[in-house]
Design a binder for these strands. Structure first.
Lengths: 180, 180
DNA sequence: TATTGTTATACTCTATAACTATA
DNA sequence: TATAGTTATAGAGTATAACAATA
């Protein structure tokens, strides 16, 4: 093995800030970097939690929407969440296999399917919500109630700056104009 | 076309909060949801910006590291950023094709390659940094200097709660123990 | 003709592990 | 034997568009 590369940085000095050249802004402490980093890790942990109840984040989102829009047509839900129709098929297939959602015949339009949460689906959703609240507690640890409120206010402001629609996650959403 | 689904929610009432059932917490305003949503959109916009200079976010991260660790071996950089070695090959290939980075022979270890930023690479990095700072300004619009500082402090606290290493983005990093 | 839901296909992405050459 | 870099391969994920039934 060759000797340590003499150009290596001192780990104790630089480790916490990440590689950074003289004269460059500290990207590791920029709002954009922090949001990207935190969003990625938060999503990863959320995915891990949801897998405990057999779901992925997208299934959770659709399940919540179905509870809120009980009996709506499949395309109504996919339009609301801006999920592509073909992706929606796979999502509902999965939820049906778990027996948490049922497709039923639409009373007047035979092309259409209405979506319904089963009693078991309600239980699974309760459990998923508990898991999500646990993650929320982890994130908020050490923040006072006032700090958390301020944090949410500022993040909401940033979301406005980006033109995001509240409550609509862009990960699975089609591009295009926001709903009117 | 069939008449509007009678279970549809009133768009004007519910659009900003997203689908939500009675008795459920307002996920759309939770820290976790906001971070996930903002992180996704911030990353998407950052990727769009980097494409203006022919880069993807990972290339930007590696380019910054090479500037900070000029002349280090390829595996030193990939270890620092926790990028898998085989991914690093494709990243450096791309940076070399853009003539922003050069591989050179290691002076003592003929298996190894040292990485060097070209003068043109410095220019490209300058431009990429400008683009990133523009996004940072967009994100911070409407926040006072004090508010931005508080926001960064609180986000850093949340990052600590998640055990994240400052400046190290988990998107391209292998799993495993953090550097000592 | 247009729309709902479905299926099939083609594409991207990337991680794993095999391989070469050196140490 | 172990390591640096490279290459090959296989799997997951996803969007696109074609399709069948119905409006």
């Amino acid at each position: 093995m060759s000797p340590p590369d003499p150009t290596d940085l001192d780990p104790e000095t630089e480790a916490r800030a990440g590689p950074r050249a003289q004269g460059r802004p500290p990207f590791g402490q920029a709002v954009g970097f922090l949001l990207s980093q935190l969003g990625f890790e938060t999503s990863r942990r959320f995915g891990d939690l949801m897998s405990e109840v057999g779901l992925e984040p997208r299934h959770f989102a659709v399940l919540r929407a179905i509870e809120a829009m009980e009996g709506s047509a499949q395309n109504t839900v996919s339009d609301r969440l801006r999920v592509p129709a073909s992706s929606m098929v796979a999502i509902i297939d999965h939820l049906e296999q778990l027996r948490v959602v049922e497709r039923r015949l639409h009373p007047t339009d035979r092309r259409s399917r209405t979506l319904h949460l089963t009693p078991h689906g309600k239980e699974v959703l309760d459990r998923a919500v508990d898991l999500a609240m646990g993650l929320e507690s982890t994130l908020n640890a050490g923040l006072s109630v006032d700090q958390r409120r301020e944090l949410i206010e500022m993040l909401s402001r940033v979301a406005d700056n980006l033109g995001l629609t509240a409550g609509l996650h862009p990960a699975n959403a089609r591009d295009g104009e926001a709903p009117p």
